[in-house]
Structures are given as structure tokens and as C-alpha cells.
């Protein structure tokens, strides 16, 4: 396996060009760059539909994981938690100490060794939002959990949320399964915030395994659970029984 993968470089824009690429084109460009294996998970923000694009060709900005580079160190968990759980010190909010239990990205580790970071997919068809039983607000049209227009992030309205857990169950059934109920409030947690458009996990990953890349949503790892990803990778890397 080559060490230097172009796709996980921190300069995806220059390497992939400014024009969004289709999955096939994306993979073929990777192939030119070497035999590196870049798999995408935790797709993210809906950007804009190309004129005349079909649903399958919608272009997304993804937090992509290069599994050949990820070492399972969980730095992403700590920096995510630190940024998204700031602490007030003398009236200023600063990053917290980084408790990984409060992170919105979770690295799942398996035996044989596979580490699969999981993060909210901000799915276009929002199974979590659809599962919410709270009536849409007549003014905004929002349920107690809704997709924000700006980044496509999923947001919970704590005032209207009835802590039923339907959104969590839907995420588990139809998507990554990252959402969880807060142990005390019962409200959904671990929705990726994209850190105001500059994800801390991408910025701080020591191994440059995480990056924001624009692709279409029809790749094979889309919305897969960490268990399914691990099974696939395990077969690819460790299975020499054939």
C-alpha cells in the first residue's frame, strides 16, 4: 500500500480541481495517484445542485476518511469535543479539555485492527428529521430536529424536543448510527456541527487521514455503519484465505 495518497492531502481543491467530480472520475483520478485506498464516510453538507443534475448526482462536501492513513488515535474525538464543548473562562468561551465522550465523531476500533471513524452524514433524505413526531412549526416548518439550510447540519430544538429517541433509532436503522440520546435529557446528540465550516477533526488529524472533499453521494460507503465498514476493510486487508 502506498503511503502517499493524493486524496488525503490537505489540498484537495488543487488536486481535484475546483470543479466537483463524480465518484467514478474521483476514483479513477485516485488510481492515477497510486494504489491508495480512499474510502468515504460521513458525507456531509449539501452544496448546490448542478443545473440539470439528478438526485444521485447531487454534490456533497464530505468528511472523507482515508482508512489507509487513519491510525485510530482518536485525536479527532478530543479536538471535536474541545471545540464543540467550550468553557467560559473569565467571560470568554475557550475550547474545553476535550472529553471524547462528548465528541460528535467516534472512532470505532475492531479486532482484527480496523479503525472506523463515524460522523453524522447529514443525509439528504434526513431519516432522523422524518422520524420526528413533533408537528412542524407553522412559522418555520421545522420539527424538533431539522436540517439547517446553511451547512446541511442537523439541529435539535431543545425547547420542542420530547426526548422520544425516534431520530436516534432512525439514524441507526437507515444511516451511520452515530446519533445517541443524551443520558440525562434524552435529547439527540452527536450531530456534526462542521465547526462553522472548518472542521477541527480535519485540521488536527495528525495523520492527515481526514479531509473535506466534494463528491456525489453514490459511493459504496455512503451512510454505512462502522461495523459494516470494518467488515469490508477487514476482508480487504486481512483475508488471505482465498
Amino acid at each position: 500500500m502506498k503511503e502517499n495518497s493524493i486524496a488525503s492531502s490537505h489540498e484537495p481543491k488543487t488536486l481535484l480541481g475546483s470543479k466537483p467530480v463524480s465518484r467514478r472520475e474521483f476514483i479513477s483520478r485516485l488510481a492515477l495517484g497510486g494504489s491508495s485506498l480512499v474510502l468515504l464516510t460521513g458525507c456531509s453538507r449539501w452544496v448546490f445542485p448542478e443545473p440539470g443534475a439528478t438526485a444521485r448526482e447531487k454534490i456533497y462536501e464530505y468528511i472523507a476518511v482515508d482508512y489507509t492513513k487513519c491510525t485510530g488515535c482518536r485525536t479527532c474525538e478530543a479536538v471535536c469535543s474541545a471545540f464543540n464543548n467550550p468553557v467560559s473562562v473569565d467571560g470568554t468561551m475557550i475550547p474545553g479539555p476535550g472529553n471524547p465522550a462528548l465528541a460528535n465523531i467516534f472512532v470505532h476500533s475492531f479486532n482484527p485492527d480496523v479503525s472506523a471513524p463515524a460522523v453524522c452524514a447529514r443525509c439528504a433524505d434526513t431519516p432522523c428529521v422524518n422520524a420526528c413526531p413533533v408537528d412542524p412549526d407553522p412559522a418555520t416548518g421545522r420539527r424538533a430536529i431539522y436540517q439547517d439550510k446553511k451547512y446541511g447540519t442537523i439541529i435539535n430544538d431543545p425547547d420542542r424536543c420530547i426526548s422520544c429517541g425516534n431520530c436516534v433509532a432512525a439514524c441507526s436503522a437507515d444511516s451511520v448510527g452515530i446519533l445517541a440520546q443524551h443520558p440525562e435529557t434524552g435529547r439527540p446528540m452527536r450531530m456534526c456541527t462542521l465547526c462553522d465550516g472548518e472542521p477541527e477533526c480535519v485540521r488536527h488529524c495528525p495523520y492527515e487521514a481526514l479531509s473535506m472533499i466534494r463528491v456525489t453521494d453514490d459511493h459504496s460507503f455512503y451512510r454505512m455503519s462502522p461495523e459494516e465498514i470494518a467488515e469490508k476493510l477487514s476482508a480487504r486487508w486481512y483475508d488471505f484465505s482465498a
Binding site: 500500500m1 489507509t68 491510525t71 485510530g72 488515535c73 482518536r74 485525536t75 478530543a78 485492527d113 480496523v114 479503525s115 495528525p206 495523520y207 486487508w237 486481512y238
Partner: peptide, 11 residues
């Protein structure tokens, strides 16, 4: 060797 792994928050 197929993969490299790190301990908690290790570089």
C-alpha cells in the same frame, strides 16, 4: 504489515 496504529492521541 498492512496497517499502522497509534495509541490515544499519539503522533
Amino acid at each position: 504489515w498492512v496497517r499502522d496504529f497509534a495509541c490515544y492521541c499519539c503522533c
